[in-house]
Design a protein around this nucleic acid. Structure first.
Length: 600
RNA sequence: GGCCCGGUAGUUCAGUUGGUUAGAACGCUAGCCUGUCACGCUAGAGGUCACGAGUUCGAGUCUCGUCCGGGUCGCCA
């Protein structure tokens, strides 16, 4: 065999061969999926990233080649030359695309042998995540994971093409940047040249893309890696990728339109299905009141219903007290939910408790006579009014939470999703895109006794709310928007502040004094002096986009080398201790914790 | 940092009230087999029950701690 590289014109991908190739002499390379030894007949399924083709060895096969084939085991790497031939009637395998043909092998090379892998390289794998991630290079051989990674590449290609067509310029921004005081924890990188000083890895290219607007690159685009030193979730990794954009001389309408165009193109070219644009829009306030969430899943109902006014004077202290304390009493009505058992309702009670609710009041409207956890504390009229307001019909179940608004929203927002999931109310074929707009500009932190920017401190307030900035900062709305799909925040952005006056006001509202502002964002404030265009932008979480389009739930399934919950990576075993010499050069000493001291 | 779930053969799991030699399936090894494709048949090998203490005559099973993995709340401008 003189050549077995893919560059050889006779070398083809396993999964691409069809009966149209019968008679061709070809070379294929790949991994042995399975060897079937039938005595004087051997078959080998050869796998590459395109699929599987069957290699055949029989009494017409050269004895030396036959002996070689006899010894081949799973995951051996092979190059085989031979003639494509029909399998003949009766021997056709309808389950695989190449099932009509096989390769009669005339030359065989074992490029590498292999140990039996710790788990089978098959599409449907129920092997524990830990083992898969320790051997991620094997896990990534599985066809479903290969499809995910290839799909991700296609989505990125479509994004690059689309934004280039729209006149966006792809610009790289630094990965070693100044640590930022607000927002998520930074990953810090020590400086050797400047001992005691640190870079941070970017949580996003935010400031740099704004600076690019100041420079006149009026349409910027980047597939940008971002880093946040926060705890992981099924949909959150410490390093992740954004489709990041920024536009000058643009307002919300321009930015939403460009991105609706992008998603439509993704649906055309990748999903091969229509997507209706423009998307529905909903203010943050409406989203919270109707769905208890700023990223509502609108594929099902179970909307929240406010009954505060009906119970504020009632004899039930739980309801009355919540309203008096400035909170509210709200609930959801589960159609047909009355058949839920007490045990099931108890588990929903435990569920809402994780969101800070003290309990879950319920009312089962059953034909045989209703049962309820709270009706005995209310008058018949009060109960009737609640049932009427919540439209609790026969066979329905009402679930009610009384607490401060944030807890009511959080718990009921999560509860309606949980109930929908348990009752199978979610139509998984739907893609309900939604813009959530008019987010609050600021969020009060009880712990720190101050306001923080809900989006980031460069977000433009809504003009009509500006007077409130001094009197009622919590009520000011921002020119910020999120793109939501089926209950997941796919991306978000805002119109940015572009004047010194406004930015100074914003820092004041955040309790950042002039000196601190100068020290931390002086370069930005100074830049405002030299003519900054109005601008705004948006960033999508690429990993989440890929996940949702592929119908996956675990973000790790679309990332080649993901990290586990404690932010370590099991394959290479990082993070790892640093070389003492390197630490010395950096002027860094690692301080042992008290526990470790005791062990020494 | 809190709460919940899990760790038994290479893999996925079962393992009764604490009781003899810890099982099954798949995989693996060897032999046989001419049309398999989840090949088949026969035989065989394979276990620190995550780790460490404790309770007990006796622990895979009960208790505590540790480690590892998963989910989640906090956190994630």
């Amino acid at each position: 065999m003189e050549s077995f590289t893919k560059a050889d014109k006779r070398t083809v991908y396993c999964g691409t061969l069809t009966s149209a190739d019968i008679g061709r002499e070809v070379t294929v390379t790949g991994w042995c999926q399975r060897q079937r030894d039938l005595g004087s007949l051997i078959f080998i399924d050869l796998r590459d990233r395109t699929g599987i083709v069957q290699l055949a060895f029989d009494d017409g096969t050269d004895r030396e080649i036959f002996e070689k084939a006899f010894g081949i085991r799973a995951e051996y790497v092979l190059a085989a030359k031979g003639t494509v031939r029909s399998r003949g009637e009766g021997a056709i395998n309808r389950n695989i695309p190449t099932g009509e043909i096989e390769i009669f092998v005339t030359s065989l090379k074992i490029l590498a042998s292999a140990e039996t892998p710790p788990f089978a390289i098959v599409e449907k794998s129920d092997v524990k995540a830990e083992l898969r991630l320790k051997h991620r290079y094997l896990d990534l051989r599985r066809p479903d994971l290969q499809r995910n990674i290839i799909a991700r590449s296609e989505i990125v290609r479509i994004a690059r093409n689309y934004f280039a067509e729209q006149g966006f310029i792809d610009i790289e921004t630094p990965c070693l940047i100044k640590p930022t005081p607000e927002g998520a924890r930074d990953y810090l990188v020590p400086s050797r040249v400047h001992q005691g000083k640190f870079y941070a890895l970017p949580q996003s290219p935010q400031l740099y893309k704004q600076l690019l607007m100041y420079s006149g690159f009026d349409r910027y685009f980047q597939i940008a890696r971002c880093f946040r030193d926060e705890d992981l979730r099924a949909d959150r990794q410490p390093e992740f990728t954004q489709i990041d954009e920024e536009m000058s001389f643009a307002d919300e309408e321009d930015i939403m339109a460009v991105n609706e165009g992008f998603l439509k193109k993704l649906f055309d070219e990748f999903m091969h299905q229509p997507l209706e644009i423009p998307f529905k829009r909903m203010t943050w306030k409406e989203a919270m009141n109707r769905f208890g969430s700023d990223k509502p899943d609108t594929r099902f109902g179970l909307e929240l219903c406010d009954i505060s006014d009906l119970v504020k004077d009632s004899g039930f202290s739980v309801f009355k007290g919540a309203v008096e304390a400035g909170g509210s009493v709200r609930g959801i009505t589960v159609p047909g939910g009355a058949k839920m058992t007490r045990k099931e309702i108890d588990s929903l009670t435990d569920f809402v408790k994780t969101y800070g609710a003290k309990g879950l009041a319920w009312y089962k409207n059953t034909a045989g006579g209703p049962t309820s956890s709270f009706a005995k504390f209310l008058t018949e009229d009060e109960t009737a009014a609640i049932l009427d307001r919540m439209q609790v019909g026969e066979g329905d179940l009402a679930l009610i939470v009384a607490a401060k608004n944030k807890v009511v929203w959080d718990s009921l927002g999560a509860l309606r999703c949980e109930v929908a999931k348990r009752l199978g109310l979610i139509d998984k074929s739907k893609f309900n895109f939604l813009w959530v707009t008019e987010f609050p500009l600021l969020e009060y932190s009880e712990e720190d006794g101050r306001f923080y920017a809900m989006h980031h401190p460069f977000t433009m307030p809504m003009e009509e709310d500006l007077p409130l900035l001094d009197t009622d900062p919590g009520a000011v709305r921002a020119r910020a928007y999120d793109c939501v799909l089926n209950g997941t925040e796919l991306g978000g952005g805002s119109i940015r502040i572009h004047t010194t006056e406004m930015q100074t006001k914003m820092f004041e509202a955040l309790g950042i004094g002039p000196e601190e502002a100068q020290e931390k964002f002086g370069f930005l404030l100074e830049a405002f002096e030299y003519g900054v265009p109005p601008h705004g932008g948006l960033a999508f979480g690429l990993d989440r986009v890929v996940c949702l389009l592929l119908g996956l739930e675990d973000i790790r399934d679309v990332i080649a080398f993901p990290k586990v919950q404690n932010a370590s990576e099991l394959l290479s075993k990082c993070p790892a201790p640093a070389d003492p010499k390197a630490l010395e050069e950096l002027g860094i000493a690692v301080v042992k914790t008290e526990e470790e001291e005791e062990d020494v």
